[in-house]
């Protein structure tokens, strides 16, 4: 097993690095509060929040924009970014494949299929809670199918292939539903908006119910860091070192399902974060692929920063609408190409 305490990784042991990272993220989030519709300086924002926390009354527009919309939206973007980054690191560790992403298990596609079905049946109109609930049910159904279909075999390749097949099936289900209702403009509009992801209009309610599952998922992911480290050495070696492969596979898939399913339910489909963020963590911060104790938190922080940046950029461009899912794919794709080129250049 490589020595993870050597080289750049050593600096990660110093709590100062984490403290600075957390401080930078907090400052960025505070600055993000000033960006978007309405003119609010940082001082105004802080004063407004202080007034709110003291139980005072705010001017209705400022309260609606800053307190009811922007603050929960920023917190949700941090949470979702951290969750998706973490899910990516777990997936790549589980499959020992840097090209694996949470999407290969079909969780977000299953959530999308359930939501599109809800749109087609018009049940989403029954309340704001319906679409996230449907997405959660879709994600859980996919997870259940994944476990049900792979319960008799323990190898990861079988899990991966089953995930790919379920992903394709769920994608096809969405396509069939849309094809059956081709003439319903509102359905296509809603489906497209949801599939591009959005933090727009999410309030404390959405933040409240997404926080628990994502935080639990991230803690559970961190708890898996040792078996994931050992898995890097190979499945058989890991087994001889005491890793219960079946249990690890089950827990890791459950964690990924929880993180991706909840994120998708909260904000729609956000692509590429889970694939790119662990690479960014490894490349920029010198975290080794087998050092999950550091890779997982680093992926959470970088995922949160990326999503905060994407959402803030989108808000800065208002009234033009820039879908965060499209932007993450754009940024992620370009970054990934750069990373591959850099990696290739180093190898030659």
């Amino acid at each position: 097993m490589p020595n993870s305490a050597t080289g750049p990784a050593r600096s990660w042991r110093h709590p100062l690095v984490w403290s600075l990272g957390a401080l930078a993220l907090t400052l960025a989030a505070a600055l993000a509060l000033t960006i978007g519709p309405g003119k609010f300086a940082l001082g105004d924002v802080l004063e407004l929040f202080a007034t709110k926390l003291r139980g005072g009354q705010l001017e209705p527009t400022a309260e609606a924009i800053l307190w009811e919309l922007r603050l929960p939206r920023i917190l949700l973007s941090l949470l979702v970014g951290a969750g998706l980054g973490c899910a990516g690191a777990v997936t790549q560790g589980l499959f020992r494949n840097p090209l694996a992403s949470p999407g290969v298990l079909g969780i977000s596609t299953g959530a999308a299929a359930a939501v599109v079905l809800g749109f087609a049946l018009g049940v989403d109109e029954q309340g704001l809670w319906v679409t996230p609930t449907l997405a959660g049910l879709g994600a859980l159904t996919m997870l259940g199918l994944l476990f049900g279909l792979t319960s008799r075999r323990q190898d990861l390749a079988y899990l991966l292939l089953t995930g790919v097949a379920l992903n394709a099936l769920a994608g096809a289900a969405s396509t069939v539903i849309l094809a059956l209702f081709l003439d319903r403009y509102a359905l296509a509009q809603k489906a497209m908006a949801w599939m591009m992801g959005s933090f727009d209009g999410r309030g404390f309610t959405q933040l409240g119910w997404a926080s628990g599952p994502i935080l639990i998922g991230m803690i559970a992911a961190w708890a898996l860091h040792r078996p994931l480290d050992l898995l890097v050495l190979g499945e058989e070696t890991a087994a001889t070192l005491g890793v219960d492969r079946g249990r690890l596979r089950l827990l890791a898939a459950l964690v990924v399902g929880l993180l991706v399913g909840t994120s998708t339910a909260a904000v729609g489909v956000i692509g590429f974060v889970g694939l790119v963020v662990p690479h960014v963590a490894r490349a920029l911060l010198g975290v080794a692929g087998h050092a999950h104790a550091r890779l997982l938190p680093a992926s959470m922080v970088i995922g949160a920063a990326l999503m905060l940046g994407v959402d803030t950029l989108g808000r800065a461009l208002t009234p033009m609408f820039l879908a965060p899912g499209a932007l993450t794919s754009l940024i992620g794709g370009l970054f990934f190409l750069w990373l591959l080129r850099r990696h290739g250049g180093g190898a030659s």
Partner: peptide, 23 residues
């Protein structure tokens, strides 16, 4: 008018391709 005649969805096998198609 918010009417679009969506057509030719074809056979798609993933969410990303569906999103690309809608776009």
């Amino acid at each position: 008018s918010p009417f679009i005649a969506l057509s030719s969805l074809g056979s798609l096998s993933s969410l990303s391709s569906l999103g690309r198609l809608l776009l």
